[in-house]
Nucleic acid binder design. Structure first.
Lengths: 200, 200, 200, 200
DNA sequence: AATGAATGAGAATTCATTCAT
DNA sequence: CATGAATGAATTCTCATTCAT
């Protein structure tokens, strides 16, 4: 089963399915997986418990599909930001900002993501190579290396470092522990760039 | 309630309590919080279900205490590595390697950590300032700034960036997706250092 | 929260709820509160354990609602017997007999009542003034005093004395220790009447 | 097993046993039988859980013995008050007041009594004839009949009526719902006397 | 498609009782 | 005698899932 195949865009989705997704994301954010019974999702989404089972085989399927759906959105951001026909450095900053903004503005999603990724559900997920999100990121950093902009380090490392910096900053903001203004954000990106860029 | 106060060192701990901690960590790694019933912990730890409740008020308390205990171990690493009387740069590499090695070699703990931090349990935890782990990290980076080794950026940012890089690399290793040799690890640390170090 | 408001008549009640009430009353009679696990109620009522929790929030709620329901039935008897447009004395005998018969013929209820009233559940019940059962009784005896049939004693005392005599006789009969024929019952009522009636 | 034989007077009892009895009575009053685990009794009585089992075979035995012990105290009151060599009527008032005062001043005991009597424990108790408390009461009322002071009604009825009036008044006082002054108490007794006394 | 009452397996927790010290 | 840690059966309650309407 290729998870990418099940993916449906927001527009094609029925109202109920969308409501179920939305409710699940919100509720899981607040209460976690186990703090979110199907009955709670049903109530919050304004549907009957049984209705959820028309759209999703089981709770696990709901969560997996929601994860795919959420990941798709992140993929869309990467696709949009990483393929601009602009100089690589500029594109790197654009990508960092784009993803950071996406996570910051979709905290339900970020939280759900983090929970899912660290849950046993995720362990049975397809391997990295098939993961479109990372595939795109890898390609992006590969390009940077090819263009002589980045140090000759495994793109996986570069991608992981960059993404983890984005996520951790977005979480920091989300937690309310720290707030960054535009200047600070640029500073952070610059730090990272200084680290990975090839000196010339 | 200061979470550090409840902490008891491994040696002072009763055998049963230690066994319960150990079993919980292992089982949660594999099955997650909700995939790990108390009965399973009991069986795995070789005690009766009721016995767990002599040591811990509830499942939530067990998990919280385990988190504190785990965090303490990480704190010990930071304490050990970040206070060496050696040049800051050297100390930075030592700290990075020390923490990375710790997480890599304690994958149960790492996994448990990540699950806990992203669970609703963690939202009700004490704020960052009281967190000894981050307090130590902040102080370390503060020192780097004072000594003119690091760029003048918020220590919180430096600490977060560094720690997230360590965690993400350890998780990458854990997942088996990627393996790093000594040289690559040094490369990664160097990247980071290049980013945060003050040019001279 | 006015306990009378929650009350639902037997007819409006779902079959399952009625069966649960009935089973609880019977089983509590025989085994007491703690001798009656929810699983036993479920089995006896022919429903699944979980079903009980559709109708009642918890065991405590079940018992409280059952008490209200039982009390309501006793109230109905008092209402019926105490409001007849007949001379007060006659009405007093009618009321005594009516309540006695009710308790004698509903021993499950009587037993449940006594257990509940002497349990910690009851201590958190609404005060006497809001208790429709006693309100009715008080009014009845007030009438007796007004009409010059009864001694000028607090209606609360008269009500308590009368009701305790009814209960104790019903329990005596229930225990099988003593059986009263019609003549003896009249004798007992006469005793009480002789005590409380105003001599003329 | 004759329950009277196990009875031990307060003085012969070990300190621990007395403490256990006292604690049980207090705790059961507040929390009921099931709200009072042995561990709670142990803690409250200042002994180890295991110690209770040196003195009592089981929780049920503890409760039964406590009931016997409590009943003994009530028996002592009846014995004291009902055997005075004074006119019957005077003795009746003395007995009523004595028992009422006893219950009013020993509310833990009264509450425990009522709980026990209405519990399944009591159903397996020895029959009425062997019950010293009621035996004494019956004899007392028998005497009243013999002496021509009371109507010719079964002494059981007279005893039950009288005792239930005492208990219900003591409970009323205990609940705080009603308070009686000396005059009112006399009034109540007089009512009862008027009811049961033979007109002459 | 939608409903939501009903199910029942499974989870957390309690507590009377035991027994090694 | 006294202790209290340990036991594990029993209990309350939850919740994913089903199915008759």
């Amino acid at each position: 089963m290729n998870i990418q195949l099940e993916v449906v865009s927001m527009e094609q989705m029925s109202d109920k399915k969308r409501a179920i997704f939305k409710s699940t994301m919100e509720l899981v954010r607040e209460n976690g997986f186990h703090g979110t019974p199907m009955s709670m999702v049903a109530k919050h989404a304004g549907v009957a418990a049984g209705t959820i089972y028309h759209y999703f085989e089981s709770k696990e399927h709901l969560l997996r599909e929601l994860f795919n759906y959420a990941q798709q959105q992140a993929v869309a951001v990467v696709e949009r930001e990483s393929t601009a026909t602009i100089p690589f450095k500029e594109c790197f900053f654009k990508l960092w900002t784009g993803l950071y903004t996406f996570y910051r503005d979709n905290q339900d999603l970020l939280r759900f993501f983090e929970q899912f990724v660290n849950s046993p559900y995720h362990t049975t997920m397809p391997p990295l190579a098939e993961d479109r999100f990372y595939t795109l990121l890898f390609a992006f950093f590969e390009r940077g290396i090819q263009e002589g902009e980045l140090k000759k380090v495994s793109p996986k490392i570069l991608a992981t470092l960059t993404h983890s910096s984005i996520i951790s900053m977005a979480k920091m903001t989300a937690s309310g522990r720290l707030h960054f203004d535009r200047k600070e954000l640029q500073q952070i990106q610059q730090l990272l760039w200084d680290g990975i860029a090839l000196d010339r």
